[in-house]
Design a protein around this nucleic acid. Structure first.
Length: 271
DNA sequence: CCGGACGCCTGTCGGC
DNA sequence: TGCCGACAGGCGTCCG
């Protein structure tokens, strides 16, 4: 997926096109997403005004008068702004048509993404309830990671990919941050010192900020609202570089499997 | 509570 | 060229 940098890139791209626009129509061509799009979903949105485009974790939050449209991009989702009518292709599942003739189009080949309507009157959505802190916020620190990791035997990579611990970090940026912090991805989370967690927290912040600056990482599917790919792929030091020389020491990068996810690392630099 | 495995989908790539 | 398995940016659910 789209991890935090790709979702934030999308948020920044779509907000100016959506702000203070009225939804004139909603077209749902495929309701079978990660969570089914409920009947009547369209009716909640039509006629309402988009006031703000926010983000929490990897969720985009379109705040309207009567509620919030929550969008998750899954593994292969993207959002585009169309300024002229464009025929939908096979994986273009939802269009949000605006009062100025433009439209927001949701595309997702694998359909792991989802859309939810959250009425203002309702409770907090269950998917938002158990999320950890935003990694770019001041509350996310090495001390925080240290405190949350005590007595946990899970490997540090799946630990920082756990959205209840810290949000927004997926498989790419977890691998990159651990390489930058020189921590072995398989090291048990409960066996990392305070200073090393301080380094890791800083590495996560730095990697995410730099990736946002490059418009995210495009491997295959991700594009911003204007169709542009993200360029952070050029900066990746371990992800997708199995067998290539480590940028620090020249050692060929190795891989292992952690939590059913491929993990590339340097056996010399990361311990 | 914790941690690991599974499944949801489509597309692509490497090996034979 | 075709077929088959493995793998891919996520994550909720189930089971031990």
């Amino acid at each position: 997926m789209p991890e935090l940098p790709e979702v934030e890139t999308t948020r920044r791209g779509i907000e100016p096109h959506l702000k203070e626009r009225v939804v004139s129509a909603v077209v749902v061509r495929e309701r079978r997403l990660r969570w089914p799009v409920p009947p009547g979903f369209e009716d909640e949105l039509v006629g309402d005004t988009i006031r703000k485009v926010g983000r929490r974790a990897k969720y985009l939050l379109l705040e309207l008068g009567a509620g919030t449209l929550m969008i998750h991009l899954g593994m292969s989702g993207s959002l585009r702004i169309l300024t002229v009518p464009t025929p939908p292709s096979r994986h273009d599942h939802v269009d949000l048509c605006l009062d100025n003739g433009a439209a927001l189009r949701f595309r997702d080949a694998r359909r792991f993404g989802s859309l939810h309507w959250l009425p203002n009157t309702g409770p907090t959505h269950p998917l938002l309830r158990n999320l950890g802190p935003e990694p770019l916020s001041p509350t996310f620190t090495g001390n925080y990671l240290y405190a949350r990791s005590r007595a946990r035997r899970v490997a540090v990579k799946p630990f920082i990919m756990n959205q209840a611990i810290v949000v927004g970090v997926g498989n790419i940026y977890a691998a990159e941050a651990l390489h930058r912090a020189r921590i072995h991805p398989g090291r048990p989370a409960g066996r990392i010192s305070i200073p090393r967690y301080a380094t890791l927290a800083t590495a996560i912040k730095t990697i995410l900020q730099e990736a946002i600056g490059q418009g995210g990482t495009t491997l295959r599917d991700f594009v911003a609202e204007n169709g542009q790919p993200g360029y952070f792929k050029q900066q990746l030091r371990v992800y997708g570089r199995l067998g290539q020389a480590c940028s620090n020491c020249g050692e060929p990068l190795r891989s292992l499997r952690l939590g059913q996810r491929g993990t590339v690392y340097c056996a010399v630099c990361q311990r």
